[in-house]
């Protein structure tokens, strides 16, 4: 990390000190609020993505948000939170490219405030299941060596009753393997066929490495979820996804998976337009997409065909109770 922006308000925070120790050669610029650097219009996400800076900040205001309707794994109360904005990976389909103007990593170091809010939210419904989803605006584990997010948060979920989902493509699982597995935590891996990883998920671990990480976590007792989202169209998608599901479930026991979900590639229209501006040469964005109710998605019945086919393949390996289709 070459450049770190430091909010005055967290300059003396314990977490900040630990992070700064890791980057003794970084140039540090003090700022009042992360928005001064992160929000200005005249920034190019594509140019910054090659060499993003790290912004250490305090998350103010509402830290825990209600998940959209249809999002969840069967729990009654679903929330999401983001201890970080932006991701260490560079997936060409990712909505963050269209949502943010900057590719800098914003890391909110005031974990204690997030945890207090989670506790408060859980206490509102003490007898019903509350799920907290992490990894919406970032990968939950990819930045773990720096952020120590999982290491800091997991102990607070040990007593229940709240559930936590860590969404990741990362194989940074050391902190999970160094502590006992927790029943109310699901480590949800996003998986794609290797050709999709090669073409679109730049900087992410290969499929085989993700599968090996899943196996190690399962052996250690952690609950693992599988997220097949986004499903990407290819002229030969049937063969590609058939081979993919075979490969995944040759290595993993489908019935021991906590949950699986499927969702086709889709983006809010405004994000899509921003991404098209950044990557006009990207074939994915020139694909057979059309707009429906403010979302760009595969046109006509193509999306239904894709999802039906993949669902049919997936349900050969898991029970329907384990399956949670993505709805939007």
């Amino acid at each position: 990390m070459q450049q770190i922006y430091l909010e005055h308000s967290i300059a003396e925070h314990e977490q900040t000190a630990k992070i700064l120790q890791r980057f003794p050669r970084a140039h540090i610029t003090r700022i009042e609020h992360f928005g001064e650097v992160f929000n200005p219009r005249a920034q190019n996400f594509r140019l910054q993505k090659k060499s993003p800076a790290l912004i250490l900040a305090r998350k103010q205001g509402k830290r825990i948000l209600t998940a959209p309707a249809g999002y969840g794994l069967g729990g009654k109360h679903n929330y999401y939170f983001s201890h970080m904005q932006n991701c260490a990976y560079d997936c060409r389909y990712c909505f963050l490219q269209g949502m943010y103007r900057s590719a800098h990593y914003v890391l909110f170091v005031n974990y204690e405030d997030f945890l207090a809010d989670i506790q408060q939210q859980t206490q509102l419904n003490p007898h019903e299941s509350s799920w907290f989803f992490s990894g919406y605006d970032c990968d939950s584990l990819a930045y773990e060596p720096v952020s120590q997010f999982a290491r800091s948060f997991l102990p607070h979920f040990a007593e229940g009753p709240a559930w936590l989902e860590l969404r990741t493509k990362s194989t940074q699982i050391r902190s999970l393997l160094q502590q006992p597995a927790q029943n109310n935590v699901v480590v949800a891996f996003s998986l794609s066929p290797e050709p999709v990883i090669q073409a679109l998920e730049h900087g992410t671990p290969a499929l085989q490495k993700r599968l090996s990480a899943i196996q190690r976590l399962q052996q250690h007792g952690w609950r693992v979820g599988l997220r097949f989202d986004p499903i990407i169209y290819d002229a030969d998608y049937r063969s590609m996804y058939q081979t993919f599901f075979q490969q995944v479930f040759q290595q993993l026991d489908g019935h021991s998976i906590h949950s699986a979900s499927l969702g086709a590639f889709r983006l809010p229209r405004n994000f899509y337009r921003n991404m098209l501006h950044l990557y006009p040469e990207e074939p994915l964005l020139a694909g057979p997409l059309s707009e429906h109710q403010g979302m760009m998605a595969y046109s006509g019945d193509l999306e239904a065909q894709l999802l039906d086919y993949c669902e049919q393949q997936l349900l050969q390996y898991i029970h329907t109770e384990q399956y949670h289709p993505c709805q939007y």
Binding site: Q2, Q3, Y5, H27, T29, I31, E36, V37, P40, Q43, N44, L47, Q48, K50, S51, A53, S102
Partner: peptide
């Protein structure tokens, strides 16, 4: 410059530091 400041107005800008 990592930050450009108009001394009188206090307005400031942050050039994005993508090179070293």
């Amino acid at each position: 410059a990592d930050k450009v400041i108009d001394y009188h107005s206090g307005q400031s800008w942050y050039p994005a530091l993508v090179i070293r």
